[in-house]
Every structure is written in structure tokens, then in C-alpha cells.
Design a binder for these strands. Structure first.
Lengths: 263, 263
DNA sequence: CGCCGTCTTGACGGGAGTCAATTATGGTGG
DNA sequence: CCACCATAATTGACTCCCGTCAAGACGGCG
């Protein structure tokens, strides 16, 4: 079925929040626009009906023509491995822009799938380009650049060798993002499954489950299904960062560096 | 010292190849420029003296002001982990553009270090922006987008569970890039150390060495120090894709052949 | 030749993957 | 309301790939 869900877009202007008043504007493409530019931008942006869990926004191989900003909800993007399994690249929250990776080739190299009931703003790329706005061009470039840095941080995260560090980093990063959005950093729910988390972090689903259990029993977090509460964000952050450099072993030979029970 | 190496840039116009005749132009920012634009672009681009192995082009935390295109040689970029070790994000070959990740924040989030004697073209970002060229803007955006896709492929590569798949993927990717540059895909030398490769692929240096040995003993490649010869690129590609060619067997030491060594 | 950094090779143990069984949850229909 | 099932998640047992430690080989260079 491909990207059939992009068909029959119904603009629900009556219920839409105008870009001018949108509290997510500072995150999105329209961040730096003046009033006139904002009007033009709003004119081409389509506020789409909500999508249900599992719906695909675009798929690998689809022709690129639209950028999307998450308004509410969340989604994941993934590529396909040569043997046909999905590899999750990122999770996207309100304010995030998706589709940037396809501008270069004109073909989507990843798929985007909704994790929960989600609403998006759709921004036709051609029409957007026709808005001759220096601010908009600049903003687009900056967002692309930021996404490169985001990828770099993800790659760095995947370099952490131990499973608890990777999961802790993931949770801390989520907490920071929710905080930046004005939500609670300590309490939120995970819209992605354990399988998604494991896929994202290169961990088996059982390992994710076990690390959750360990973090819970150590008191750092509470988890019940998708509900997460972080009891000690700072210690979690330390765990995420704490890798024991090899030199420390040389400095304190024979020390029992029990790496698991310190938190 | 920071980015002191960017000081005292000496333009060696006398020996420089003009952008117009540069065989790497189709890869670089100047790809789509018309004659007039090309002249302006060439006017602001500085062709820098060669850098020696270990030289840093920019460092994490440096203020961003210049994009660089690799003319000859190669380099690596890396971030720092929270505990201060480097995590290699990518290797860059002639034609590649570096620095794009810093446009958004204005601060470099990664460092770039030369792996061998290398020459760069330096493109001051402000002056480039002052060239009001639609083609140039577009090209910049496309390259940023492509780098996002490159990162996504790298993340996908890191998701491969077995060490030989990751290393094979790495070698195949290198081969493809050399071929695209007009060099031999079958024979080239690795400008990066085993430690760099391991860091890039999330493998211990010993594992890299062992997998090289296995690939050599299975006849897929020849390696002597940094010299690499690929004897069977297609089978290497299959291994990278986790598709197992029937007539190749790689015997792992201390492993019974039950499970994975059927190839 | 001795020093040093890079790389290789061997031995060993552990963290996490795999397999499997159990529980919890949610949706559906009788 | 409960039986029924599918999916998600947990937990246990076991295996094994690869990281770690250690020693040695191989240049390159003064």
C-alpha cells in the first residue's frame, strides 16, 4: 500500500491551532519567520487528521515530497537491513521534523511509523521552496545539521559496551527531551515496545527487560509496562556516562570494581 | 591550542587545480554551479597546504566558520564519550565534505583528524552564504541530507550482530567508495589503524585482527599491514549482508561447527 | 641493535544472545 | 461476565561470541 495514507488529506482548519500560536513553533521550521512569512508558511502547511498506532507516514523507496513535523504523539523511523529486518534509527516527539534524510536523493531511505495516536503537520517541500525566505532556508539547513549531530550522539551511545549504560543513556535522553518540551522529565510513558527499545539500542528484548528489572530493583526507576518513573535522574545520568577507564585498574590493582551494584 | 592549525592559511594558488577542472567537483559543493557562480566560489575557497598525519582540522567546542572538502588523503571525525574517550563517527575520502554537523549550533560537536598526508579545500561559511546562489544553497542542503542517510547506514551497520559482518560491511563500503572515485575497488590501503577500525565498528582491536585473519584464511581477502586486496568482493558483500554463500567456510577457533560456521 | 608503537595470536571468563516456559495484558465474541 | 487467543513482557537456564589480559611478532627509526 505504500504511502497511500498521504492521500485524501483533509485539512481541518477549524480545529487547527495556527502556527502563530503553536507552542511547538520554536522547534519547527517556522521558528524564525516574520509575520508575513509565517502567513505564507501556514498557507501551505496541512494539518492532518490523527494517525493511529502502526500507521506509516512514508516508506522506504517512496518518492520524497513532504516534510512532517510531529504535533502530538510519537513515531519511529527505521531502515531495512539487507536480510529484510527493520533497524530503528530514531524516535520522534512533538516538534521534531521527519523526512530530512530524503531531500538529497529524492527517495526515502527510511520508513516512518506511528507509535501511538499522532497528529502531524505536513509541509509540501516544493511549495515551501517557493517561499523565498532566507530565514526558512537557514532554518532548514540548521535543522538538518542538528539531525546530523543527533545521529552522531546516537552512534556514540551505541558505542557504550554495557547494556545498562545504553538503556540508561536512552532514558536520560528521553527525559531531557520531555523536559525541553515542558513535560515532566521524571515521569512519562514509553510509546515504544521493549522490542523497539532493544532494536534501537542493539540489545535483545530479554536484555532490555532484565536491565529494566535491575534498574527497578536498585531503586533508580519504577516501570510498569510502558509507564516510567525516574526516581534518581542524576544517578541514572552517572550510570549512562560512567565507563571505567582502563587506567583506573592500573592505579588500583586488585580493587574489586563491582560495576553493577554501585547504584 | 584548539584549532590553531587553521591559522596562517597559505593559499598556494600557483599549484592549485582550479575548481573548473577539478575531477572531484561533482562530489563537492560546487557541483551544480554555472560558470559565473563557479568563479565566485573559487574566489572564496582556500586551497590549503597539506596536513600531516595526526593534524587536527577542527576540534570539539571550536566555533564553526569553515566547511572543508577533502582533496587528497583521508581523515576521521570523532566525538568524545562522557568519560573522555574518542568515538569515531566516520572516515572521509576525497570529495567528502566535513563540518556540516556544526552549522546548526555554530559549535563543532566533533573533531576531525587527518589520517595521512591530506590536502583540503577550505570554504568560509559566511562568505559562501553571501554568494546568493540558489544552486549552492540547494547543493548544501542535499549534501547535509545525504550525510544524514550516511549516518543511518552506519547505524544500521552497527546493528549487525557478528563481528565478521560488520568488518565485511565496512570493507565493502570502502570498496564502493573507492570505485565511485575512480580508484580500484579491489585493492587499496587502509589509512586507519586497527584501533580506528575497531572503534568505528564497536569491536575490540583484537577482534578486528582476528576477523582479518579469518577472512584472509578463507581466501576472501589479502591483508598485509594496511595493504588490502579483496579477492572476492561479491562473497564479501554476501557476508556483509548476512547472506551466507554455500561454498565458503570460515572456521572459528574453539568453535564447533554446529551453529554458525556453515559458510 | 634496542626501543617503541602497531599488530597478531592464545587463553580465559563474562555479558549478553538464544531458547524456552510462564505470566500479564488487551481485545474479541459467545 | 468469562472463555479464548494473540501479543507483550518477564524470568530462568544455558551457550557462546567477543572483550580482556597477556605475551610475542613485526616492522620502522634513531
Amino acid at each position: 500500500m505504500g504511502s497511500s495514507k498521504t492521500d485524501n488529506v483533509v485539512s481541518i482548519k477549524s480545529r487547527q491551532v495556527s502556527c502563530k500560536d503553536c507552542r511547538l513553533r520554536k522547534f519547527c521550521l517556522a521558528a524564525d519567520l516574520n509575520v508575513k512569512e509565517l502567513g505564507m508558511f501556514e498557507g501551505i502547511t496541512q494539518h492532518r487528521r490523527s494517525l493511529e498506532r502502526g500507521a506509516r507516514v512514508f516508506h522506504i523507496g517512496d518518492r520524497f515530497n513532504t516534510l512532517y513535523t510531529v504535533r502530538t504523539g510519537s513515531l519511529k523511523t527505521y531502515t531495512l537491513t539487507p536480510d529484510g529486518r527493520e533497524k530503528i534509527i530514531g524516535f520522534y516527539l512533538p516538534g521534531d521534523l521527519i523526512g530530512l534524510d530524503a531531500m538529497g536523493s529524492g527517495i526515502h531511505g527510511s520508513s516512518a511509523e506511528v507509535l501511538e495516536t499522532t497528529t502531524l503537520c505536513a509541509i509540501p517541500f516544493n511549495r515551501m521552496s517557493s517561499i523565498q525566505s532566507k530565514s526558512l532556508q537557514q532554518r532548514l539547513l540548521n535543522l538538518a545539521s542538528e539531525q546530523i549531530q543527533t545521529r552522531d550522539r546516537h552512534i556514540t551511545l551505541l558505542g557504550k559496551e554495557r547494556a545498562d549504560q545504553r538503556l540508561a543513556s536512552f532514558l536520560v535522553h528521553l527525559a531531557d527531551r520531555f523536559k525541553a518540551l515542558g513535560y515532566s522529565a521524571k515521569q512519562f510513558n514509553l510509546s515504544m515496545s521493549r522490542a523497539d527499545i532493544g532494536n534501537y539500542l542493539n540489545l535483545a528484548i530479554e536484555t532490555v527487560s532484565r536491565v529494566f528489572a535491575k534498574l527497578r530493583s536498585s531503586g533508580l526507576i519504577n516501570v510498569d509496562r510502558r509507564q516510567l518513573r525516574i526516581n534518581n535522574l542524576e544517578k541514572l545520568r552517572c550510570l549512562a556516562a560512567a565507563e571505567i577507564p582502563k587506567d583506573i585498574r592500573i592505579i588500583w590493582p586488585g580493587t574489586n570494581l563491582n560495576r553493577h551494584s554501585q547504584y
